[in-house]
Amino acid sequence: MSTVKIGIIIGSTRPGRVGDQVANWVLEHASARTDAEFELVDLADFSLPHLDEAMPPSLGQYANDHTKAWAEKVDSFDGYIFVTPEYNHSTSGALKNALDFVYGEWNDKAAGLVSYGAAGGTRAAEHLRLILGELQVADVRQQVAFSLMTDFENYHVFTPAAYHQGMLATQLDQLVPWAAALKGVRDARSALAAAA
């Protein structure tokens, strides 16, 4: 059985963001595991414009090179950890746009949510759960939520409380098996399509 691959997606492209600090913390702790491979995915590296594909993403008929590159990256993973800020009681526009760009590449995968904000980013995570449901992504129960007031020094330097490591470990214990199981679902779907 091939190794489960999990993408840790930095959900903010904002100058001065703190999401990269959070995502690197996730990567550091996740990489100690031997049951999956983890990779940082920075939305800022993809420079996605506001959704500019003429055809609905559900058709998988991507015309633009930036969409094809993003689709290839999304497709390369069995699951994801979304590191999201909370902006105005929701996730970032950049992450929502990236989610909307492709469709089939997300289907039958698993996801964990790591959020941050004044209220731990919990409302952003709840909105993400609704979006992920429509994309056929199974999100695990355990969330990791960081407060800008207690887990950051001067709201900018990431200094997480130690107990968050246990929460992340629980999330990964849920995420990795789900990602592996859904890989089997995708394989079965592909076999059925090939036989049709």
Rank of each mutant, 00 (worst) to 15 (best):
K5I: 05
I6P: 05
I6V: 14
G7E: 03
I10N: 15
I10M: 13
S12F: 05
T13P: 13
G16I: 00
V22H: 03
A23Q: 03
N24G: 02
V26E: 11
V26Y: 13
L27V: 08
E28F: 10
D35S: 07
A36C: 13
V41A: 00
D42I: 10
S47F: 00
P49F: 11
P49E: 10
H50S: 11
L51W: 09
A54Q: 15
M55W: 02
M55L: 12
P56V: 01
Y62G: 06
N64L: 11
N64E: 01
D65L: 03
D65Y: 03
D65T: 11
H66N: 14
K68N: 13
E72N: 11
K73A: 10
K73T: 10
F77P: 00
F77V: 05
Y87N: 08
Y87C: 06
Y87T: 07
Y87S: 08
T91M: 15
T91P: 02
G93Q: 14
A94E: 05
N97G: 12
A98C: 13
A98I: 09
F101V: 01
F101Y: 12
V102H: 04
G104I: 14
E105P: 06
N107E: 12
A110T: 14
G112D: 02
L113D: 02
L113S: 08
S115Y: 09
A118E: 13
A118C: 05
G120L: 07
G120D: 00
G120R: 04
T122R: 05
T122H: 02
A124Y: 11
A125H: 04
E126G: 02
H127M: 13
L132Y: 01
A138E: 01
R141L: 11
Q142N: 12
Q143N: 12
S147Y: 02
S147R: 04
T150P: 03
D151L: 10
D151S: 08
E153S: 08
E153A: 09
N154E: 13
F158P: 03
P160R: 00
P160S: 01
A161W: 07
Q165S: 06
G166H: 01
M167A: 07
L168Q: 06
A169F: 08
T170M: 11
D173R: 12
D173F: 13
D173H: 09
Q174I: 07
L175Y: 07
L175A: 07
A179D: 03
A180R: 09
A181N: 10
K183V: 06
G184N: 11
A188R: 14
S190Q: 08
A191H: 09
L192R: 15
A196C: 08
A196N: 15
